[in-house]
Simulated assay, not measured.
Amino acid sequence: MANNPYEISFTGNPFSYTINGYDLGTSQKYSWVEGLANCPKCAAEVTSSRFYCKECGYGKDKKTKPVKVTGYEYVINDEYEHGKYFRVADKSLFETVIIEPYKKQMIVEALSLVENSDLIFNQWGFKDTIEKGTGVSLLFHGLPGTGKTLMAQAVADYLGKKLITITAAEVMDKYVGETEKKIAELFDKHKEDVILFDECDSLLGSRERARASWEVSQVNVLLNKLENHRGVTVFTTNHSTNLDKALDRRIAVKVRFEMPSQELRKQIWRRMFPKKAPLAADIDWDLLASYEITGGYVKNTVLRAARIAAFRKETEITFTVLKEALKQELMALMEYENVEQAATAAQETPEKEQLKLHQNR
């Protein structure tokens, strides 16, 4: 690689890698150095480890974007000469998250504001008429285990950005004014990242129901910083009705993550098994999909079946093992929910009733 202007070095496990001496941090994506692509200029095959075409030299010029590699796109920042980082945009996770297609389309259209920022704000001149609210804020709400947090990670990967996950415990402080200070510092520090406020109702509860002045103050600061933030912010919650009403106009897209349909559940069951898994041929996917459970419980069941099969030294993960794992998962779920009901006197939801119907199938 002596003639390659994009010199790459790897150290440690996982790799900590640099390009032309610029530290890119740590990556868990080992496959990114193994892909192949075709040069957009001469169509010759190019390996991702070279970053440029040996046949025609495309990609050697630092002003030229490197060749796209299957599954990933290497993007040179406009200020590369000043030491800005490369970013890796990976859309594979976004494509594998199973939700209704129209909801994915809503998210992609919202992210277009980031991908086409120069076109919209500079070339079309919107920077002259719109000063605030130029970032992208997404609200993912709905049942637990339906993929809200997974989609947040997929959004970050889609844009080639780092996901910063924030919970109330990380910013809440017992001293007056410290919570607001931490929130402000958070937005200032992560302007280039995707910020995820997980279970955001803990930080963005309705000010109308606030019992203390500091609760109102922290919501005010968060909303103000969000208004001026030009990056991407994702909020997830199981209780969207508890959120402050002022958040509504600051959200570009609201996506409700519901109980997947039977067809989507079938896709989720199939997707959970990797190609290398020794899956038996007798799996009844339609029967598995008939159980109204979310993707989170499907994942738990699949892992439970895998460890049962491994413990018993089975050569395959059979349908019998899967049904046993599913029954154990449902029994564990019902036991937990019964304890919860006893503690909170909460009424059963239709989902819980459905689990009871299927428990002994």
Results as ranks from 00 to 15, higher is better:
residue 109 E to H: 13
residue 197 F to P: 15
residue 125 G to M: 12
residue 158 Y to H: 10
residue 117 S to Q: 11
residue 140 F to K: 13
residue 234 V to I: 15
residue 188 D to Y: 15
residue 201 D to H: 14
residue 200 C to P: 08
residue 237 T to E: 15
residue 232 V to P: 09
residue 180 E to Q: 11
residue 231 G to I: 01
residue 114 V to Y: 01
residue 221 V to C: 06
residue 103 K to D: 10
residue 241 T to A: 13
residue 244 D to I: 02
residue 101 P to Q: 01
residue 222 L to A: 09
residue 205 G to L: 02
residue 107 I to F: 06
residue 236 T to G: 13
residue 150 L to K: 14
residue 119 L to Y: 00
residue 219 V to R: 08
residue 236 T to D: 14
residue 243 L to F: 02
residue 243 L to V: 06
residue 161 K to S: 12
residue 215 E to R: 06
residue 244 D to K: 04
residue 120 I to F: 03
residue 132 K to S: 04
residue 238 N to G: 13
residue 176 V to Q: 05
residue 108 V to L: 02
residue 206 S to C: 04
residue 202 S to W: 02
residue 101 P to T: 02
residue 127 K to C: 00
residue 157 D to F: 00
residue 174 K to T: 11
residue 216 V to M: 05
residue 182 K to W: 07
residue 154 A to E: 10
residue 233 T to Q: 08
residue 122 N to S: 08
residue 153 Q to C: 03
residue 110 A to L: 05
residue 157 D to S: 08
residue 203 L to I: 01
residue 175 Y to F: 13
residue 129 T to C: 13
residue 128 D to A: 12
residue 128 D to W: 14
residue 100 E to W: 07
residue 168 A to F: 07
residue 215 E to L: 05
residue 105 Q to C: 08
residue 208 E to C: 05
residue 160 G to F: 10
residue 159 L to V: 02
residue 230 R to P: 05
residue 240 S to I: 12
residue 183 I to N: 04
residue 99 I to R: 11
residue 166 I to G: 06
residue 144 P to N: 08
residue 150 L to D: 12
residue 245 K to N: 11
residue 162 K to G: 13
residue 169 A to K: 09
residue 120 I to E: 00
residue 189 K to Y: 13
residue 169 A to M: 03
residue 156 A to Q: 09
residue 127 K to S: 00
residue 132 K to N: 05
residue 196 L to N: 14
residue 147 G to A: 11
residue 210 A to D: 05
residue 101 P to H: 03
residue 145 G to Q: 07
residue 216 V to P: 06
residue 193 D to H: 09
residue 226 L to G: 01
residue 204 L to D: 09
residue 232 V to E: 11
residue 134 T to G: 03
residue 191 K to D: 06
residue 208 E to I: 05
residue 100 E to M: 09
residue 119 L to W: 00
residue 101 P to A: 01
residue 196 L to M: 15
residue 157 D to E: 12
residue 161 K to D: 14
residue 239 H to W: 08
residue 236 T to L: 11
residue 171 V to E: 03
residue 227 E to Y: 01
residue 134 T to E: 03
residue 240 S to P: 11
residue 133 G to P: 02
residue 154 A to Q: 08
residue 243 L to W: 03
residue 152 A to D: 07
residue 105 Q to F: 14
residue 208 E to M: 09
residue 234 V to L: 15
residue 137 S to W: 02
residue 165 T to M: 10
residue 173 D to C: 08
residue 116 N to G: 11
residue 153 Q to E: 14
residue 158 Y to F: 03
residue 200 C to T: 03
residue 188 D to T: 15
residue 143 L to H: 12
residue 201 D to L: 03
residue 233 T to C: 15
residue 110 A to F: 03
residue 203 L to K: 07
residue 158 Y to P: 04
residue 100 E to S: 10
residue 110 A to Q: 01
residue 239 H to C: 06
residue 154 A to I: 00
residue 168 A to L: 06
residue 187 F to P: 00
residue 134 T to F: 01
residue 148 K to E: 14
residue 233 T to P: 09
residue 232 V to Q: 10
residue 177 G to H: 10
residue 225 K to C: 07
residue 236 T to K: 13
residue 177 G to E: 09
residue 133 G to V: 00
residue 127 K to W: 00
